[in-house]
């Protein structure tokens, strides 16, 4: 039996993960900003057999409401065993280079909005001495590239925040899982041309579930991204800076 909180539950990856947890003895609270879309997700999970599904619409741009928001989640669920952070946007790098207001907005959602919630949850999980905090980072956070460094820096920062949180909560038996997917075919990447390295969100979800079960710290998914990023990270900066990436 688990109580599961999913933030950004209309994300394709999150939805697939929720399906893997759709069992009679699990209870879920799904949060997303588009309530009609969220309703479709909830109905599906109910049919698939999730014990109890509640939903809430919330715009995570409202950073100032973080504290109150987490409080309300606890009011609905009572306690939380697993929380997944899946909301996010993929900023248009070229547009952001020209528009600082836009860039700021993207950073606020993809970094600030997440870490304030993590901070609130950190206190609760520390007391609770159990559970899993899982956050969708990205391989893009492993190294800055001209084509995607706004998103990359938010994900990279997030990854460092998670390291610290993990370090802090490790002795309280809390799993802090950073998920680093590679290329995933979801609405977020619909304008990309797909190649052989791409996988569906269902594959990512299976890997996440296994990583949660095994209480892993960092997950590269699919597995080959661990090797790809090892290579990418090891290129000396004086060479890397000249590459068109």
């Amino acid at each position: 039996m688990a109580k599961i909180l999913i933030l950004g539950a209309t994300s394709a990856i999150a939805e697939q993960l929720a399906r893997l947890y759709a069992q009679a003895d699990n209870e879920m609270l799904l949060v997303a900003r588009n309530s009609k879309a969220l309703d479709e997700v909830c109905r599906d999970l109910e049919v698939r057999g999730t014990g109890k599904v509640s939903s809430r619409s919330h715009d995570f741009n409202a950073i100032e409401k973080a504290q109150e928001f987490i409080k309300q989640c606890y009011e609905i669920l009572g306690s939380i065993d697993i929380v997944l952070f899946a909301f996010g946007t993929l900023p248009d790098q070229t547009r952001s280079n020209q528009d600082t207001t836009l860039m700021h907005k993207e950073i606020l959602l993809n970094y600030n909005a997440i870490v304030v919630l993590l901070n609130e949850l950190g206190m609760k999980f520390e007391k609770q001495q159990s559970g899993t905090i899982a956050v969708l980072g990205s391989v893009a956070g492993d190294r800055g590239r001209q084509s995607n460094y706004i998103y990359g820096s938010a994900k990279g920062g997030l990854s460092i925040f998670m390291q610290g949180l993990r370090n802090r909560l490790a002795r309280h038996d809390v799993q802090v899982l950073t998920i680093k997917p590679g290329f995933v075919d979801t609405p977020m990447t619909k304008s990309f041309k797909k190649g052989p390295l791409w996988v569906g969100p269902d594959k990512i979800a299976q890997d996440i579930k296994r990583a949660i079960d095994k209480r892993k710290d960092v997950l590269y998914t699919p597995w080959y991204w661990w090797w790809i990023m090892l290579v990418i990270r090891s290129i000396p900066e004086r060479i890397f800076k000249k590459l068109k990436l």
Binding site: A12, E40, R43, D44, V47, P187
Partner: peptide, 15 residues
């Protein structure tokens, strides 16, 4: 992405 189950009626055998 329109791959959701919306309703299941065991008695009526409908999905």
């Amino acid at each position: 992405y329109l791959d959701r189950l919306l309703e299941y009626h065991e008695g009526a055998r409908l999905i």
